[in-house]
Nucleic acid binder design. Structure first.
Lengths: 213, 213
DNA sequence: GTCTATAAGATGATAGAC
DNA sequence: GTCTATCATCTTATAGAC
Protein backbone atom coordinates (compact mmCIF):
# COMPACT_ATOMS: atom_id res chain seq x y z
CA UNK A 1 0.00 0.00 0.00
CA UNK A 2 2.62 2.50 -1.02
CA UNK A 3 1.11 5.95 -1.26
CA UNK A 4 3.90 8.46 -0.67
CA UNK A 5 6.01 9.15 -3.68
CA UNK A 6 9.17 10.80 -4.80
CA UNK A 7 8.46 14.33 -5.92
CA UNK A 8 10.98 16.96 -6.74
CA UNK A 9 9.85 19.28 -9.54
CA UNK A 10 10.86 18.60 -13.05
CA UNK A 11 10.81 14.85 -12.88
CA UNK A 12 8.13 12.83 -14.59
CA UNK A 13 6.36 12.43 -11.26
CA UNK A 14 3.29 10.26 -11.02
CA UNK A 15 0.25 12.11 -9.81
CA UNK A 16 -1.68 10.07 -7.27
CA UNK A 17 -3.77 12.29 -5.07
CA UNK A 18 -3.85 10.17 -1.96
CA UNK A 19 -1.59 12.23 0.29
CA UNK A 20 -3.65 13.98 2.96
CA UNK A 21 -1.36 14.50 5.93
CA UNK A 22 -0.73 18.17 6.69
CA UNK A 23 2.80 19.14 5.79
CA UNK A 24 3.31 15.98 3.81
CA UNK A 25 4.48 16.21 0.22
CA UNK A 26 1.41 16.95 -1.86
CA UNK A 27 0.71 16.11 -5.46
CA UNK A 28 0.80 18.94 -7.97
CA UNK A 29 -2.93 18.99 -8.46
CA UNK A 30 -3.62 19.23 -4.75
CA UNK A 31 -1.01 21.95 -4.35
CA UNK A 32 -2.64 23.98 -7.11
CA UNK A 33 -6.09 23.63 -5.55
CA UNK A 34 -4.89 24.68 -2.10
CA UNK A 35 -2.97 27.69 -3.35
CA UNK A 36 -5.97 28.75 -5.43
CA UNK A 37 -8.30 28.43 -2.45
CA UNK A 38 -6.06 30.64 -0.34
CA UNK A 39 -5.70 33.24 -3.09
CA UNK A 40 -9.44 33.37 -3.77
CA UNK A 41 -9.97 33.87 -0.06
CA UNK A 42 -7.50 36.76 0.05
CA UNK A 43 -7.96 38.44 -3.33
CA UNK A 44 -11.17 37.15 -4.82
CA UNK A 45 -11.68 35.67 -8.27
CA UNK A 46 -10.83 38.59 -10.54
CA UNK A 47 -7.88 39.61 -8.42
CA UNK A 48 -6.22 36.22 -8.74
CA UNK A 49 -4.29 35.33 -11.89
CA UNK A 50 -3.52 31.87 -13.20
CA UNK A 51 0.14 32.79 -13.51
CA UNK A 52 0.26 33.78 -9.85
CA UNK A 53 -1.41 30.50 -8.93
CA UNK A 54 1.12 28.50 -10.91
CA UNK A 55 4.05 30.43 -9.44
CA UNK A 56 2.94 30.10 -5.82
CA UNK A 57 2.04 26.45 -6.24
CA UNK A 58 5.47 25.71 -7.69
CA UNK A 59 3.87 24.44 -10.89
CA UNK A 60 3.92 25.57 -14.49
CA UNK A 61 1.12 27.04 -16.54
CA UNK A 62 1.05 23.85 -18.58
CA UNK A 63 0.43 21.76 -15.47
CA UNK A 64 -2.43 23.96 -14.35
CA UNK A 65 -4.19 23.57 -17.69
CA UNK A 66 -3.34 19.88 -17.74
CA UNK A 67 -5.28 19.28 -14.53
CA UNK A 68 -7.95 21.88 -15.20
CA UNK A 69 -8.70 21.97 -18.93
CA UNK A 70 -11.76 24.07 -18.10
CA UNK A 71 -9.40 26.88 -17.18
CA UNK A 72 -9.80 29.41 -14.42
CA UNK A 73 -13.48 28.72 -13.84
CA UNK A 74 -13.06 24.99 -13.35
CA UNK A 75 -10.09 25.56 -11.05
CA UNK A 76 -11.95 28.18 -9.01
CA UNK A 77 -14.96 25.91 -8.58
CA UNK A 78 -12.70 23.15 -7.29
CA UNK A 79 -10.93 25.58 -4.96
CA UNK A 80 -14.27 26.78 -3.59
CA UNK A 81 -15.19 23.17 -2.85
CA UNK A 82 -11.88 22.84 -1.02
CA UNK A 83 -12.64 25.95 1.04
CA UNK A 84 -16.09 24.56 1.70
CA UNK A 85 -14.55 21.48 3.28
CA UNK A 86 -12.04 23.49 5.32
CA UNK A 87 -14.78 25.65 6.82
CA UNK A 88 -16.90 22.54 7.43
CA UNK A 89 -14.03 21.03 9.39
CA UNK A 90 -13.77 24.17 11.50
CA UNK A 91 -17.52 24.13 12.12
CA UNK A 92 -17.44 20.47 13.15
CA UNK A 93 -14.60 21.21 15.55
CA UNK A 94 -16.35 24.21 17.11
CA UNK A 95 -19.80 22.65 17.27
CA UNK A 96 -18.35 19.49 18.79
CA UNK A 97 -16.34 21.32 21.42
CA UNK A 98 -19.36 22.05 23.60
CA UNK A 99 -22.45 19.97 24.21
CA UNK A 100 -24.56 23.06 24.80
CA UNK A 101 -25.47 24.60 21.43
CA UNK A 102 -25.35 28.18 22.72
CA UNK A 103 -21.84 27.66 24.01
CA UNK A 104 -20.91 25.92 20.80
CA UNK A 105 -21.70 29.13 18.90
CA UNK A 106 -19.23 31.03 21.04
CA UNK A 107 -16.63 28.35 20.37
CA UNK A 108 -17.11 28.67 16.61
CA UNK A 109 -16.71 32.44 16.62
CA UNK A 110 -13.58 32.05 18.75
CA UNK A 111 -12.08 29.62 16.23
CA UNK A 112 -12.84 32.00 13.38
CA UNK A 113 -11.32 34.93 15.26
CA UNK A 114 -8.19 32.92 15.94
CA UNK A 115 -7.72 32.04 12.28
CA UNK A 116 -8.34 35.61 11.23
CA UNK A 117 -5.82 37.03 13.65
CA UNK A 118 -3.19 34.50 12.61
CA UNK A 119 -3.49 35.67 9.00
CA UNK A 120 -3.37 39.34 10.01
CA UNK A 121 -7.13 39.58 9.20
CA UNK A 122 -6.52 38.61 5.59
CA UNK A 123 -7.94 35.10 5.37
CA UNK A 124 -11.65 35.25 6.10
CA UNK A 125 -14.45 33.19 4.66
CA UNK A 126 -13.10 31.15 1.74
CA UNK A 127 -16.08 31.77 -0.52
CA UNK A 128 -17.48 35.25 0.20
CA UNK A 129 -15.33 37.35 -2.12
CA UNK A 130 -15.56 34.91 -5.02
CA UNK A 131 -19.29 34.43 -4.51
CA UNK A 132 -19.98 38.16 -4.75
CA UNK A 133 -17.76 38.68 -7.78
CA UNK A 134 -19.24 35.84 -9.80
CA UNK A 135 -22.92 36.43 -9.00
CA UNK A 136 -23.72 37.45 -12.55
CA UNK A 137 -21.22 35.05 -14.09
CA UNK A 138 -20.04 31.45 -14.06
CA UNK A 139 -22.85 29.09 -12.96
CA UNK A 140 -20.22 26.47 -12.13
CA UNK A 141 -18.67 28.69 -9.46
CA UNK A 142 -22.02 29.93 -8.23
CA UNK A 143 -23.16 26.36 -7.64
CA UNK A 144 -20.03 25.61 -5.60
CA UNK A 145 -20.62 28.69 -3.44
CA UNK A 146 -24.31 27.95 -2.87
CA UNK A 147 -23.43 24.37 -2.05
CA UNK A 148 -20.91 25.54 0.55
CA UNK A 149 -23.39 27.77 2.37
CA UNK A 150 -26.02 25.01 2.36
CA UNK A 151 -23.45 22.55 3.64
CA UNK A 152 -22.49 24.78 6.57
CA UNK A 153 -26.13 25.50 7.41
CA UNK A 154 -26.75 21.76 7.47
CA UNK A 155 -23.98 21.23 10.03
CA UNK A 156 -25.32 23.91 12.38
CA UNK A 157 -28.90 22.71 11.89
CA UNK A 158 -27.95 19.14 12.74
CA UNK A 159 -26.37 20.27 15.99
CA UNK A 160 -29.52 22.17 16.97
CA UNK A 161 -31.78 19.27 16.00
CA UNK A 162 -29.67 16.91 18.07
CA UNK A 163 -30.14 19.27 21.01
CA UNK A 164 -33.89 18.96 20.74
CA UNK A 165 -34.72 22.16 18.88
CA UNK A 166 -37.88 22.39 16.85
CA UNK A 167 -37.18 21.53 13.23
CA UNK A 168 -38.17 24.88 11.76
CA UNK A 169 -36.37 26.78 14.52
CA UNK A 170 -33.26 24.72 13.88
CA UNK A 171 -33.32 25.35 10.14
CA UNK A 172 -33.94 29.07 10.46
CA UNK A 173 -31.41 29.55 13.25
CA UNK A 174 -28.83 27.68 11.20
CA UNK A 175 -29.42 30.05 8.31
CA UNK A 176 -28.96 33.11 10.49
CA UNK A 177 -25.94 31.64 12.27
CA UNK A 178 -24.08 31.23 8.99
CA UNK A 179 -25.09 34.74 7.91
CA UNK A 180 -23.82 36.14 11.20
CA UNK A 181 -20.52 34.30 10.86
CA UNK A 182 -20.08 35.66 7.33
CA UNK A 183 -20.94 39.20 8.33
CA UNK A 184 -19.00 39.29 11.58
CA UNK A 185 -15.94 37.86 9.86
CA UNK A 186 -16.12 40.65 7.29
CA UNK A 187 -16.57 43.29 9.98
CA UNK A 188 -13.61 41.91 11.91
CA UNK A 189 -11.46 41.96 8.80
CA UNK A 190 -12.35 45.53 7.89
CA UNK A 191 -11.88 46.80 11.43
CA UNK A 192 -8.84 44.59 12.05
CA UNK A 193 -10.24 43.57 15.42
CA UNK A 194 -11.72 40.37 16.80
CA UNK A 195 -14.32 42.37 18.75
CA UNK A 196 -17.08 42.05 16.11
CA UNK A 197 -16.67 38.26 16.07
CA UNK A 198 -16.52 37.99 19.86
CA UNK A 199 -19.60 40.17 20.27
CA UNK A 200 -21.43 38.20 17.59
CA UNK A 201 -20.59 35.03 19.52
CA UNK A 202 -22.24 36.40 22.64
CA UNK A 203 -25.28 37.53 20.69
CA UNK A 204 -25.61 34.16 18.99
CA UNK A 205 -25.44 32.57 22.43
CA UNK A 206 -28.33 34.73 23.55
CA UNK A 207 -30.31 34.10 20.38
CA UNK A 208 -29.98 30.33 20.67
CA UNK A 209 -31.00 30.55 24.32
CA UNK A 210 -34.13 32.42 23.29
CA UNK A 211 -35.24 29.48 21.14
CA UNK A 212 -34.10 26.68 23.46
CA UNK A 213 -36.85 24.06 23.78
CA UNK B 1 -28.96 81.23 -7.98
CA UNK B 2 -28.84 79.32 -11.25
CA UNK B 3 -27.64 75.79 -10.67
CA UNK B 4 -29.05 73.55 -13.42
CA UNK B 5 -27.10 73.64 -16.62
CA UNK B 6 -27.16 72.67 -20.26
CA UNK B 7 -25.35 69.40 -20.83
CA UNK B 8 -25.27 67.31 -23.93
CA UNK B 9 -21.98 65.45 -24.42
CA UNK B 10 -19.21 66.88 -26.46
CA UNK B 11 -19.86 70.48 -25.61
CA UNK B 12 -17.55 72.40 -23.36
CA UNK B 13 -20.00 71.90 -20.51
CA UNK B 14 -19.36 73.49 -17.16
CA UNK B 15 -19.08 70.99 -14.36
CA UNK B 16 -20.88 72.16 -11.26
CA UNK B 17 -21.88 69.24 -9.10
CA UNK B 18 -25.00 70.63 -7.48
CA UNK B 19 -27.66 68.54 -9.19
CA UNK B 20 -29.16 66.06 -6.77
CA UNK B 21 -32.68 65.25 -7.98
CA UNK B 22 -33.11 61.66 -9.12
CA UNK B 23 -33.45 61.48 -12.86
CA UNK B 24 -32.24 65.01 -13.32
CA UNK B 25 -29.34 65.68 -15.64
CA UNK B 26 -26.21 64.93 -13.67
CA UNK B 27 -22.76 66.34 -14.09
CA UNK B 28 -20.14 64.09 -15.63
CA UNK B 29 -18.27 63.61 -12.38
CA UNK B 30 -21.39 62.60 -10.51
CA UNK B 31 -22.39 60.22 -13.30
CA UNK B 32 -18.97 58.56 -13.18
CA UNK B 33 -19.14 58.13 -9.42
CA UNK B 34 -22.62 56.61 -9.50
CA UNK B 35 -21.81 54.19 -12.29
CA UNK B 36 -18.63 53.14 -10.48
CA UNK B 37 -20.51 52.58 -7.23
CA UNK B 38 -23.02 50.33 -8.97
CA UNK B 39 -20.31 48.37 -10.79
CA UNK B 40 -18.23 47.89 -7.63
CA UNK B 41 -21.36 46.62 -5.93
CA UNK B 42 -22.03 44.10 -8.71
CA UNK B 43 -18.56 43.05 -9.80
CA UNK B 44 -16.11 44.15 -7.16
CA UNK B 45 -12.96 46.21 -7.61
CA UNK B 46 -10.82 43.94 -9.75
CA UNK B 47 -13.74 42.92 -11.91
CA UNK B 48 -14.52 46.50 -12.87
CA UNK B 49 -12.50 48.24 -15.56
CA UNK B 50 -12.07 51.96 -16.06
CA UNK B 51 -13.07 51.63 -19.70
CA UNK B 52 -16.32 49.96 -18.69
CA UNK B 53 -16.95 52.75 -16.21
CA UNK B 54 -16.34 55.42 -18.85
CA UNK B 55 -18.55 53.65 -21.38
CA UNK B 56 -21.50 53.11 -19.02
CA UNK B 57 -21.22 56.63 -17.65
CA UNK B 58 -21.29 58.08 -21.15
CA UNK B 59 -17.92 59.70 -20.58
CA UNK B 60 -14.49 59.31 -22.10
CA UNK B 61 -11.35 57.91 -20.52
CA UNK B 62 -9.89 61.38 -20.55
CA UNK B 63 -12.78 62.74 -18.50
CA UNK B 64 -12.42 60.00 -15.91
CA UNK B 65 -8.76 60.80 -15.37
CA UNK B 66 -9.52 64.49 -15.47
CA UNK B 67 -11.81 64.21 -12.44
CA UNK B 68 -9.84 61.46 -10.74
CA UNK B 69 -6.12 62.00 -11.37
CA UNK B 70 -5.44 59.39 -8.69
CA UNK B 71 -6.81 56.78 -11.09
CA UNK B 72 -8.86 53.74 -10.25
CA UNK B 73 -8.08 53.82 -6.53
CA UNK B 74 -9.18 57.40 -6.02
CA UNK B 75 -12.33 56.79 -8.05
CA UNK B 76 -13.14 53.60 -6.15
CA UNK B 77 -12.69 55.31 -2.79
CA UNK B 78 -15.08 58.05 -3.86
CA UNK B 79 -17.58 55.48 -5.15
CA UNK B 80 -17.42 53.60 -1.85
CA UNK B 81 -18.21 56.84 -0.03
CA UNK B 82 -21.17 57.25 -2.35
CA UNK B 83 -22.38 53.72 -1.55
CA UNK B 84 -21.85 54.49 2.12
CA UNK B 85 -24.30 57.38 1.87
CA UNK B 86 -26.85 55.36 -0.11
CA UNK B 87 -26.89 52.62 2.50
CA UNK B 88 -27.05 55.22 5.26
CA UNK B 89 -30.14 56.71 3.62
CA UNK B 90 -31.77 53.29 3.51
CA UNK B 91 -30.92 52.69 7.18
CA UNK B 92 -32.35 56.07 8.18
CA UNK B 93 -35.53 55.25 6.27
CA UNK B 94 -35.90 51.80 7.83
CA UNK B 95 -34.96 52.83 11.34
CA UNK B 96 -37.30 55.79 11.18
CA UNK B 97 -40.24 53.79 9.89
CA UNK B 98 -41.01 52.26 13.30
CA UNK B 99 -40.66 53.76 16.73
CA UNK B 100 -40.00 50.36 18.27
CA UNK B 101 -36.36 49.38 17.62
CA UNK B 102 -37.11 45.67 17.26
CA UNK B 103 -39.70 46.40 14.60
CA UNK B 104 -37.33 48.83 12.95
CA UNK B 105 -34.87 45.96 12.40
CA UNK B 106 -37.52 44.02 10.52
CA UNK B 107 -38.25 47.10 8.42
CA UNK B 108 -34.59 47.46 7.48
CA UNK B 109 -34.25 43.84 6.38
CA UNK B 110 -37.43 44.23 4.35
CA UNK B 111 -36.01 47.27 2.58
CA UNK B 112 -32.80 45.42 1.79
CA UNK B 113 -34.72 42.40 0.50
CA UNK B 114 -36.79 44.65 -1.73
CA UNK B 115 -33.74 46.26 -3.28
CA UNK B 116 -32.07 42.92 -3.79
CA UNK B 117 -35.06 41.39 -5.52
CA UNK B 118 -35.44 44.40 -7.79
CA UNK B 119 -31.88 43.94 -9.02
CA UNK B 120 -32.35 40.19 -9.49
CA UNK B 121 -30.18 39.61 -6.40
CA UNK B 122 -27.21 41.33 -8.02
CA UNK B 123 -26.95 44.61 -6.11
CA UNK B 124 -26.16 43.84 -2.49
CA UNK B 125 -24.05 45.75 -0.02
CA UNK B 126 -22.17 48.48 -1.90
CA UNK B 127 -18.88 47.91 -0.09
CA UNK B 128 -18.54 44.19 0.77
CA UNK B 129 -16.97 42.90 -2.42
CA UNK B 130 -14.55 45.80 -2.76
CA UNK B 131 -13.66 45.69 0.94
CA UNK B 132 -12.70 42.01 0.74
CA UNK B 133 -10.69 42.38 -2.45
CA UNK B 134 -8.66 45.34 -1.25
CA UNK B 135 -7.90 44.12 2.28
CA UNK B 136 -4.22 43.71 1.57
CA UNK B 137 -4.06 46.68 -0.77
CA UNK B 138 -5.02 50.33 -1.13
CA UNK B 139 -5.27 52.04 2.28
CA UNK B 140 -7.38 54.76 0.67
CA UNK B 141 -10.13 52.30 -0.25
CA UNK B 142 -9.81 50.41 3.02
CA UNK B 143 -10.39 53.62 4.96
CA UNK B 144 -13.53 54.37 2.96
CA UNK B 145 -14.88 50.88 3.65
CA UNK B 146 -14.09 51.00 7.37
CA UNK B 147 -15.65 54.43 7.56
CA UNK B 148 -18.85 53.12 5.93
CA UNK B 149 -19.27 50.27 8.41
CA UNK B 150 -18.63 52.61 11.35
CA UNK B 151 -21.10 55.09 9.93
CA UNK B 152 -23.85 52.49 9.65
CA UNK B 153 -23.16 51.15 13.13
CA UNK B 154 -23.46 54.68 14.44
CA UNK B 155 -26.93 55.07 12.91
CA UNK B 156 -28.21 51.83 14.44
CA UNK B 157 -26.56 52.62 17.77
CA UNK B 158 -28.17 56.05 17.90
CA UNK B 159 -31.60 54.54 17.37
CA UNK B 160 -31.06 52.08 20.23
CA UNK B 161 -29.69 54.79 22.53
CA UNK B 162 -32.69 56.96 21.76
CA UNK B 163 -34.90 54.05 22.77
CA UNK B 164 -33.27 53.90 26.18
CA UNK B 165 -30.84 51.05 25.65
CA UNK B 166 -27.75 50.80 27.82
CA UNK B 167 -24.81 52.43 26.05
CA UNK B 168 -22.65 49.33 25.79
CA UNK B 169 -25.60 47.19 24.74
CA UNK B 170 -26.46 49.72 22.05
CA UNK B 171 -22.93 49.82 20.70
CA UNK B 172 -22.51 46.06 20.64
CA UNK B 173 -25.96 45.39 19.23
CA UNK B 174 -25.32 47.93 16.49
CA UNK B 175 -22.11 46.12 15.56
CA UNK B 176 -23.89 42.78 15.31
CA UNK B 177 -26.87 44.25 13.46
CA UNK B 178 -24.62 45.53 10.68
CA UNK B 179 -22.78 42.20 10.54
CA UNK B 180 -26.09 40.37 10.27
CA UNK B 181 -27.27 42.66 7.48
CA UNK B 182 -24.03 42.09 5.57
CA UNK B 183 -24.16 38.34 6.04
CA UNK B 184 -27.86 37.87 5.39
CA UNK B 185 -27.64 40.00 2.25
CA UNK B 186 -24.84 37.77 0.97
CA UNK B 187 -26.78 34.62 1.81
CA UNK B 188 -29.87 35.98 0.06
CA UNK B 189 -27.81 36.81 -3.01
CA UNK B 190 -26.18 33.40 -3.23
CA UNK B 191 -29.44 31.53 -2.66
CA UNK B 192 -31.45 33.97 -4.78
CA UNK B 193 -34.14 34.13 -2.12
CA UNK B 194 -35.26 36.76 0.34
CA UNK B 195 -35.79 34.10 3.01
CA UNK B 196 -32.36 34.58 4.68
CA UNK B 197 -32.99 38.32 5.03
CA UNK B 198 -36.56 37.86 6.27
CA UNK B 199 -35.46 35.25 8.81
CA UNK B 200 -32.58 37.44 9.94
CA UNK B 201 -35.08 40.24 10.45
CA UNK B 202 -37.14 38.12 12.80
CA UNK B 203 -34.05 36.99 14.68
CA UNK B 204 -32.80 40.55 15.03
CA UNK B 205 -36.23 41.45 16.39
CA UNK B 206 -35.87 38.75 19.01
CA UNK B 207 -32.30 39.72 19.84
CA UNK B 208 -33.20 43.38 20.36
CA UNK B 209 -36.13 42.31 22.55
CA UNK B 210 -33.74 40.29 24.69
CA UNK B 211 -31.75 43.42 25.53
CA UNK B 212 -34.67 45.83 25.85
CA UNK B 213 -34.26 47.97 28.98
C1' DG C 1 -13.59 69.51 -20.11
C1' DT C 2 -13.60 66.41 -23.85
C1' DC C 3 -11.59 63.47 -27.10
C1' DT C 4 -8.31 60.15 -29.61
C1' DA C 5 -4.30 57.57 -29.86
C1' DT C 6 -1.03 55.06 -27.74
C1' DA C 7 2.21 53.31 -24.44
C1' DA C 8 3.70 49.43 -21.40
C1' DG C 9 2.46 45.62 -19.26
C1' DA C 10 -0.68 41.94 -17.63
C1' DT C 11 -4.33 38.46 -18.69
C1' DG C 12 -6.43 33.80 -19.98
C1' DA C 13 -5.45 30.40 -22.94
C1' DT C 14 -2.95 27.26 -26.44
C1' DA C 15 0.72 24.58 -29.11
C1' DG C 16 3.99 21.53 -29.18
C1' DA C 17 8.67 19.87 -27.69
C1' DC C 18 10.38 16.87 -24.15
C1' DG D 1 3.05 15.38 -16.63
C1' DT D 2 6.07 19.10 -17.29
C1' DC D 3 7.94 22.91 -19.57
C1' DT D 4 8.63 27.06 -22.71
C1' DA D 5 7.16 30.18 -26.08
C1' DT D 6 3.64 32.57 -27.92
C1' DC D 7 -1.07 34.57 -29.26
C1' DA D 8 -4.68 37.75 -28.98
C1' DT D 9 -6.73 40.58 -26.01
C1' DC D 10 -7.34 43.40 -22.20
C1' DT D 11 -5.66 46.47 -18.54
C1' DT D 12 -4.31 51.06 -16.25
C1' DA D 13 -2.53 55.15 -17.36
C1' DT D 14 -0.59 59.16 -20.17
C1' DA D 15 0.07 62.75 -23.97
C1' DG D 16 -1.50 66.17 -26.41
C1' DA D 17 -4.88 68.08 -29.89
C1' DC D 18 -9.18 70.46 -29.73
Amino acid sequence: METKQHRRRGTGATERGTAAEPGAALGTRERIVRVTARLLQRQGYEGTGIKQIAREAGATLGSVYHFFPGGKQELAAEAIRHGDEEMADLLREGLGSAEDPAEAMVAVTALLAEGLRESDWLEGCPVTATALETLGGSPEIQRACARALANWQELVGAKLLACGFDEQDARELACTVISVLEGAELTSQVTRSDAPLRIAGRHLHRLVEAYRP
